[in-house]
Design a binder for these strands. Structure first.
Lengths: 344, 344
DNA sequence: TTGAAAGCGTTACCAA
DNA sequence: TTGGTAACGCTTTCAA
């Protein structure tokens, strides 16, 4: 059933039917109701392909997901962010176009999305300090929103977690507990967020006249393996730390294992604070085990961030003339044992 | 730059230019080269919206991802499967349309994909025993492939892991090591694959005249929490098992933690075998720690399964008249300490 | 408040 | 081997 057939069956023009269905005001209310009823009865849905061509809008948002060559698990931070964004797209009638590309092919993917106009805008995740995608998308004129920040001199729209503040607070928390030997297991410091997190820790230390011990400042891709190895190495060293500040829940799982394998107990011998980008089910009675108050996390819910980013991006697309949106997203550092439900 | 402009600049008709670009044979080779060169020079890409309308093909495949209401992490099995499929779609020029819906809204999502013809086919993941999606998609006439099987009496195309065989072999492995007290931490037994896995274990036991102990046969959503709680409970019971057969790597992480917290060592006091749907980086020096030969996994690489499923689905779409594809996917049970790279 | 008709940018049929 | 032209199914402008 298409518009032509529907309009003929109603004895109306395609124009009127289209208007009635799309909520245009210049249709008599009685006519509208008749049309809507007939459409429902005939189970009519407008052909999205025709509509897209006619309106020039793709009604789709592009996400690009880099895949490493290895048979690695999908980065849950990426996945959860996309899940959150997808909720919003679905709600607003947008499609989510997901492009899986090799890590070195992201630029080409964005370029293609722009050139064949298959999306109205794109989301940029995990920007590096000097990310080429920002100038590229500006050049292509494709609306985009960055989750995180880059060092780009040009203005652009972004939403970022308040990384510096989150890690300053987490460090303060450990310092207040009396810790002086704190290790940082950070993400790759080519990524902007990791640099900010490190800075947050350093600022908190400096405020109390402390300097970071280079031996305890680590940085790498945030796998469980990385957490396990690094924590083990540090614990076995001559100068073992008494606390770990970990940049993601994934390596924190590894840290916990290394700790537990050495017969140490979190909350008694060792404290771990983890920035919980990831979510509740690994966390609930996992990291936040009933082992005392020194094990905690900052929870920002990456999925909620995905939702917020999607809202901003759609808004940006609808209002191309609006100024850049630059929003700082506050995390919620839950002190002590945190077993409450995740924020919704 | 559109086709009209390009053809005018070449002094050719749109028809000829279109044919040249799309590789139709009835174009003089010289003309084709001229056209291709001009298109490249002008950076021309056909408008996908127009093409989709004209051809009647969406050049897109739909995946539906159910989201629980809670702020839960995206199921990595889903994510990795989609990643694998996405690789193939990208390679074949298809878009991947990902629809995030509440768990009770999957049917509506498929229905909408069919009614507005935004995809050429859909993938069905994690089917239940009596999954309503199979008859629904048959009724809608939308090509689909099921990863897994249902009890549907109608024929349909599917690819499934050889679950019975995998779990029979895993059980045999434990029996050969001398274990007689084996617990099964299975997935939800409303899902077909979980029933098959249970059956595999039961068959292996029966073959040696053993019966499963109901106390040790557990079934639930495969979270880490589930593994942790259940393993802890069993280990603390009057009749603790000496081995765990776990249906996914996620709960196996929890099992490992419960074991380790009790001062037990895998490979010495306890054996764990895990069906590794998930992937290498949690696994490498995680589950398969250097703790002896009794800790192992069956590796099937869900991402590889995603790739294979995508290939089949695209093939199905191109050849609508081909008979149903029903393929059993063999897993590779790696005995002993497994630290090799994941299969590609 | 309604309708006719012109796009939107392709592909595909039929004729030359 | 090439070109004219009619789809594809909608939205939108302009006229009534």
């Amino acid at each position: 059933m298409n518009l032509k057939q529907l309009s003929q069956s109603l004895g109306l023009s395609q124009t009127t039917v289209s208007r009635a269905l799309n909520g245009y005001p210049e249709v008599r209310e009685e006519t509208r109701q008749r049309v809507v009823a007939a459409a429902a009865a005939a189970n009519y849905t407008p052909n999205s392909r025709a509509r897209r061509l006619a309106t020039g809008r793709a009604m789709a948002i592009g996400h690009v997901m880099p895949l490493t060559g290895r048979e690695e698990m999908v980065n849950p931070i990426f996945a959860d962010f996309i899940a959150g964004a997808g909720e919003v797209y679905a709600r607003e009638g947008y499609d989510l176009l997901l492009s899986m590309v090799p890590a070195n092919g992201t630029e080409a993917a964005y370029r293609q999305m722009a050139s064949n106009a298959s999306v109205d805008g794109v989301m940029v995740q995990a920007p590096t300090l000097d990310d080429p995608r920002v100038p590229l998308l500006q050049e292509l004129g494709l609306p985009f929103l960055v989750h995180g920040r880059t060092a780009s001199p040009e203005a652009y729209s972004w939403l970022d977690v308040a990384n510096v503040r989150a890690f300053r607070r987490a460090t303060d928390f450990l310092l207040d507990l009396g810790h002086r030997k704190i290790a940082l297991l950070n993400g790759q410091e080519s990524l902007d967020f990791a640099l900010r997190r490190r800075r947050g820790m350093e600022e908190a230390l400096a405020e109390r006249g402390l300097a970071p011990n280079p031996l305890w400042m680590r940085s790498d891709i945030m796998t469980e393996q990385y957490g396990y190895r690094t924590a083990g190495e540090l614990l076995d060293s001559d100068t073992p730390p008494t606390a770990f500040l970990v940049s993601s829940i994934i390596p924190a799982i590894g840290v916990r294992r290394a700790v537990s394998e050495r017969g140490l107990r979190t909350g008694r011998d060792i404290s771990i604070v983890c920035h919980d980008d990831a979510l509740s089910y690994l966390d609930n009675d996992g990291l936040n085990a009933p082992e005392g108050p020194a094990f905690t996390s900052t929870r920002s819910s990456i999925r909620a961030a995905g939702r917020r980013c999607a809202e901003i991006l759609l808004d940006l697309i609808d209002n191309p003339d609006q100024p850049f949106v630059q929003e700082l997203w506050e995390t919620d550092l839950t002190l002590g044992r945190s077993t409450g439900p995740a924020p919704t």
